[in-house]
Nucleic acid binder design. Structure first.
Length: 257
DNA sequence: ATGCCCTTGTAACAAGGA
């Protein structure tokens, strides 16, 4: 079973590259984030030609998550019980059964700055997500996506640059650790170049080319699934060339159960 | 090399991203 997650930064703008990537990588299940389209605007017909069913949850120009699967999509949930909003709930969580695996795609709020009300929203969203998982966690389960938190200082290219910024504060890291500590394993992809498993590089100032990135996209899995991982890779090829997302996909291969 | 910000909505910028 090949699993992947990718913040595409607009599924419409990324459609040619998404289709090419799907055709080449052939994941069985793909979690998408920042689709930036309402559900009826998702290019479901185009991905269906490659054999994928779609579950999309969108709201317009911002946010948006989706699941693509060629091993089934059942019991789909948009959002989760107790999910906070700003003030209304946003399209940041979608869950489905893909075969016998519960798969959740998440796009955690950015937070903007530690002083911004969106930062408190981010922390409350992560705390509510933990509560939701705690009451329902049973394997096999994967929760993956853009968590907008770098778990450690090793997960940013220069910790000094991020002093006082979001994504690295102890409160954010604690909130993420509390989710992981429910019993999930962090499946870290191999970087295909260099020794840092970054998944995001700002578009500006040639940061990708200098490998000045962050690891903020994560794949968390229950131990039964983690024990079946045969490989995990960050596909930096997808970050190259014309019209890329600013995030790279993470691709994880599991042996049969 | 991979190459120096992008996307959407709305009407020349504003907002958001991280």
């Amino acid at each position: 079973m090949r699993f992947a997650t990718w913040n595409v930064n607009s599924v419409k703008a990324r459609l040619p590259r998404l289709l090419e990537w799907l055709d080449g990588t052939k994941p069985d299940v793909l979690c998408l984030q920042e689709t930036k389209v309402p559900a009826d605007g998702f290019p479901a017909a185009e991905v269906a030609e490659l054999g994928y069913e779609t579950a999309a949850y969108g709201q317009g120009r911002w946010n948006g998550v989706a699941l693509l699967s060629r091993v089934g999509l059942a019991d789909i949930s948009n959002g989760f019980p107790g999910e906070p909003g700003f003030p209304d709930p946003e399209a940041r969580y979608i869950s489905a059964l893909c075969g016998d695996i519960r798969v959740i795609s998440v796009y955690v709020p950015n937070g903007r700055t530690p002083e911004d009300p969106h930062y408190a929203y981010k922390l409350s969203w992560l705390a509510a997500l933990r509560e939701s998982l705690a009451s329902s966690l049973a394997g096999p389960l994967i929760i993956a996506g853009d968590f907008n938190v770098a778990p450690t200082d090793e997960d940013v290219w220069d910790p000094a640059v991020f002093a006082g910024a979001t994504h690295v504060t102890p409160a954010e890291r604690d909130a993420l650790a509390a989710i992981r500590d429910l019993g999930l394993r962090d499946i870290v992809g191999r970087p295909l170049k260099g020794d840092r498993p970054f998944t995001y590089w700002d578009y500006r100032a040639g940061m990708f080319h200098m490998n000045q990135g962050m690891r903020i996209d994560l794949v968390l899995a229950t131990p039964d699934l983690a024990a079946r991982v045969t490989d995990a890779v960050i596909d930096r090829e997808a970050r190259k060339g014309k019209g890329p997302s600013d995030h790279a996909p993470i691709v994880v291969d599991f042996s049969p159960s």
